[in-house]
Computed example of a mutant assay.
Amino acid sequence: MNRRRRPPRSPSRRKPEISFQNNHADLIERQLEEDGHRTWGFVIYRTTYGNDDEWQEFLARLRYRMEQHFEWCNGLDVLGLFTLLVIEDPEQLDGASTATVRQRFREWRETAPQLEQREGDEDGREIGPGLSPRYRFAIQVDADSLRSVVHDAPAPPDEDATKRGWVKLIDASWEPATDERFLNAFDPIEGVTEKDVGWMKIPYKNVDEYYVRTRDRNYWPTSYLRPPTIMGWPYTD
């Protein structure tokens, strides 16, 4: 017997057959409205400079996967508000650690909201970072992550059902633990032996998904997975 599929309780206006909560374009649009912002997207820090062709391939694959997903969401209008900002500095960032990227990102975000969004709203108030993940998290692409995207993951236009291509998502608010109970519990990663090392691996093809998720301040502490585990289903190495 064929059962009629029930419509979602809160249907997406862009794609009524799915819920609003499952449409990243709808969610990002609401985020922009709540923060009074006009652009979105993680800032990318390039920390590998050995092969420009591979770097361009990485950017092309990232753009393709995002366009593919937002077309499915009927949200190309929201994708049009996306700003791909890549920070490149071969002298200072080649081989840089996540700690170095975090510090650079913290410095950048001090003035970025005003410069990127707008100088002030109609009432003369300044525009701050709000809860925008753009100013709370950054992406780092190092030699290992670049290799994973360009050489390990399926190339577009083939479908990518894997999570072999990954990037580093860095939490700008992270600080090393001071409580000895949380120290020396794990093997060191960049010298950090606590569970939360301040960054995690996310599939490059799902950066918009993690942009949506990380707006919730509870997401990181409740969902964090320590490297080398890559976020996303299945939740195993």
Rank of each mutant, 00 (worst) to 15 (best):
W55P: 01
T222D: 11
A96K: 12
P16T: 03
N184S: 12
R104T: 05
A96R: 12
E190A: 08
D196S: 05
D152H: 07
R147K: 05
E180A: 14
P90N: 13
E71C: 05
P157Q: 09
M1L: 09
Q56L: 15
L79C: 03
A172S: 13
W233R: 12
E29W: 02
E180H: 13
M231W: 05
G128Y: 04
I127T: 10
R63K: 12
S145K: 07
V86S: 14
T83H: 06
Q92S: 12
N74D: 11
V43A: 10
F82K: 01
M200L: 12
R9Q: 10
R13S: 12
H24P: 00
A112T: 03
A143P: 00
E159Q: 07
D35M: 05
L84M: 09
D216C: 12
T48A: 13
W40H: 02
L225D: 03
V101P: 02
D237R: 15
L225G: 05
E91D: 15
N2D: 13
F82T: 00
G41Q: 00
K201W: 11
R5T: 13
A25N: 06
D89N: 14
D160W: 04
R104E: 13
P129Y: 02
R3I: 11
Q140P: 00
F105M: 15
R13A: 09
L27N: 07
L225H: 11
Y210N: 01
T214R: 07
V212S: 02
V149S: 05
A96I: 07
V101W: 07
G50K: 11
Y204K: 05
W199L: 06
E57K: 15
H151M: 06
G120R: 10
N2P: 11
T111H: 11
A153G: 01
T193N: 08
L131V: 04
E119S: 08
K163R: 13
P188C: 08
Q117A: 11
E34P: 04
E57Q: 15
Y45K: 09
S97L: 05
P227I: 07
A185V: 07
R213F: 12
